[in-house]
Computed example of a mutant assay.
Amino acid sequence: MASDFTVIRDSSPPASIPKGMVVAMGNFDGVHLGHRAVIDAALRMGLAHRKPAFAVTFEPHPRSYFSPNSPQFRLTGEAAKLRLLAATGLAGAVVMTFDKHRAETTAQDFIHHDLIERLGISGIAVGYDFHFGKGRVGSPSLLVAEAPRLGIEVDVQAHVDIAERPVSSSVIRMALAEGQIDEATAMLGGPWFVNGEVIHGEKRGRDLGFPTANIRLDKNCSLKHGIYAVRVGLGEARIDGVASFGRRPTFDNGAPLLEVFLFDFKGDLYGRHLDVAFIAFLRDELRFDHIDALVRQMNEDSRLAREKLAASPDAFPRLGSPAGI
């Protein structure tokens, strides 16, 4: 992970933008294997041009602008996305604000003003299905057609398949919603993770002998409710654990909450931010009639989680620490 990963925003002064950069352009939700192919193409182009390679991405996600009343399960919020991008070898990321002005910018104006005049790119890599500009008129074929006149190189990456299925953010979202952690992990190129602040809960886990770190996930998170084997990042430390995500049907059927029990750990985590990587789905969330039955099941969940985690000792997402997020 490069420590000098640079984040450029709409407000960044022109002097801070390295002219001649090559870019990988996309929404990059999840930074999955399809995205990595586009990024790798930009990295190769950057080496050939002897220019830095950056990602160009958009925040908030364009879909949230166009469909504000249709909640979207994002695989990675802005901070998580930038941390994943920072670990790919890119020199930085250009984060463009997606608002009314950008939504109404024509594809030609975007190419000429944003990519050529402001960023001064010498090359660009995109996925085969990436569209941009007003009415989504901008396309890989438009970039290819414009390339000779603009004097830039264009690389269009085909889809990446796993088990004869094209890798996409939407397919990964569906896999997570169905508890298909192995499928999501394969398409992401590593475990899906969330980051959140540890908050106070009802302290029930402590009374049961399973003190948990409680994290409230984004309200649009569609991860399947159930029990998971997880690996937690606490600074540089990696701690195995078992987690429940759901409404706690044995107790209150409340708002969804992620409750993480860290194995062999003692300490106060309130107010700390944790990275929680989902390694395996263990079972559905259940309601128990008796606390003793719940505790027996929690012990079995812990045993099975340790078994799953021992089989994947190095499973954890590669994360960077970009400045400016």
Rank of each mutant, 00 (worst) to 15 (best):
V23Y: 08
V23R: 06
A24Y: 09
G26H: 09
N27C: 07
D29F: 07
G30W: 10
G34N: 05
V38W: 08
M45I: 03
L47G: 15
A53P: 00
A53T: 01
P62S: 09
S67P: 10
L75I: 06
A91W: 08
G92I: 07
V95Y: 04
T97G: 07
F98M: 02
D109M: 06
D109L: 08
L115E: 02
I116W: 03
E117R: 13
E117Q: 08
G123N: 01
G127D: 06
S139Y: 04
L142T: 01
E146M: 15
L150T: 02
E153S: 14
D155M: 12
H159Q: 14
I162P: 04
I162S: 11
P166F: 13
S169H: 03
M174K: 15
G179A: 00
G196W: 08
I199W: 05
R206S: 06
D207S: 15
T212E: 04
R216H: 12
K219G: 14
E236K: 15
I239R: 03
N253F: 05
L262T: 04
L262C: 06
F263H: 02
G267P: 07
H273I: 11
D275I: 10
D284L: 07
L286Q: 15
L294Q: 02
V295G: 05
R303L: 09
R303T: 02
S312D: 11
A315Q: 07
F316Q: 06
P317Q: 05
